[in-house]
Simulated scan of single mutants.
Amino acid sequence: MNRHTGETIADEDHIAQSLVDILSTRIGTRVMRRDYGSLIPDLIDQPLNPANRLRLYAASAAAIMQWEPRITLAMVRLDVDSLSGAAILEIEAKHNDTNAPLSIRSQVQLGAAL
């Protein structure tokens, strides 16, 4: 079900929606499931340096592997527009039931605001 409209959505769209939910949820904020989510919200306003890029990749991969059993993760990449500061997290995976490739792009907020 689409979280915004309530309409039925395809399996691939549901996986994409679930990934965005997993990655944007701070660990410890879900009642009765305190370990759900990722460490990505803790990286907001951190400098966008190589060490924090690595932390972002690790936080994404760990959360996806733990909370989304329908896919096998292949790649996580961060694409940053140096002028606007916008960051897009690109996820490449394989759907476990069909072996179909899956590509998800999600915006993340990183780096201190001016």
Rank of each mutant, 00 (worst) to 15 (best):
A16T: 04
A16I: 04
A16D: 10
A16Q: 06
A16H: 00
Q17W: 04
Q17Y: 03
S18V: 12
S18I: 08
S18P: 09
S18F: 05
L19R: 05
L19W: 06
V20W: 01
V20A: 11
V20Y: 01
V20E: 09
D21Q: 06
D21M: 10
D21W: 11
D21S: 06
D21H: 04
I22K: 05
I22M: 05
S24H: 15
S24W: 07
S24P: 04
S24M: 13
T25W: 11
T25L: 09
R26Q: 14
R26I: 00
R26A: 14
I27F: 02
I27K: 04
G28K: 02
G28P: 08
G28I: 05
G28R: 01
T29G: 02
T29E: 15
T29N: 01
T29L: 01
R30V: 13
R30T: 13
R30Y: 04
V31C: 12
M32S: 07
M32C: 11
M32W: 06
R33A: 14
R33T: 13
R34I: 08
R34Y: 08
R34C: 10
R34T: 15
R34V: 12
R34H: 13
D35G: 00
D35K: 02
D35Q: 00
D35P: 00
D35S: 04
D35E: 13
Y36W: 09
Y36K: 00
G37L: 02
S38M: 12
S38H: 09
L39D: 13
L39P: 00
L39Y: 15
L39A: 13
I40T: 05
I40C: 05
I40M: 07
I40V: 11
P41E: 12
P41G: 01
D42S: 12
D42M: 15
D42T: 12
D42N: 14
D42Y: 13
D42H: 10
I44Q: 09
I44W: 09
I44V: 15
D45N: 12
D45I: 06
Q46W: 15
P47S: 01
P47W: 08
P47N: 05
L48I: 14
L48P: 06
L48Y: 14
N49T: 11
N49I: 13
N49Y: 03
N49E: 10
N49V: 08
P50L: 03
P50K: 00
P50E: 06
P50S: 00
A51Q: 13
A51P: 03
A51E: 10
A51S: 08
A51C: 01
N52P: 07
N52Q: 06
N52F: 08
N52H: 14
N52I: 03
L54N: 12
L54Q: 14
R55L: 15
L56K: 02
L56S: 15
L56W: 10
Y57L: 14
Y57D: 11
A58F: 11
A59Q: 07
A59Y: 11
A59V: 08
A59H: 07
S60L: 06
S60Y: 12
S60H: 09
S60F: 09
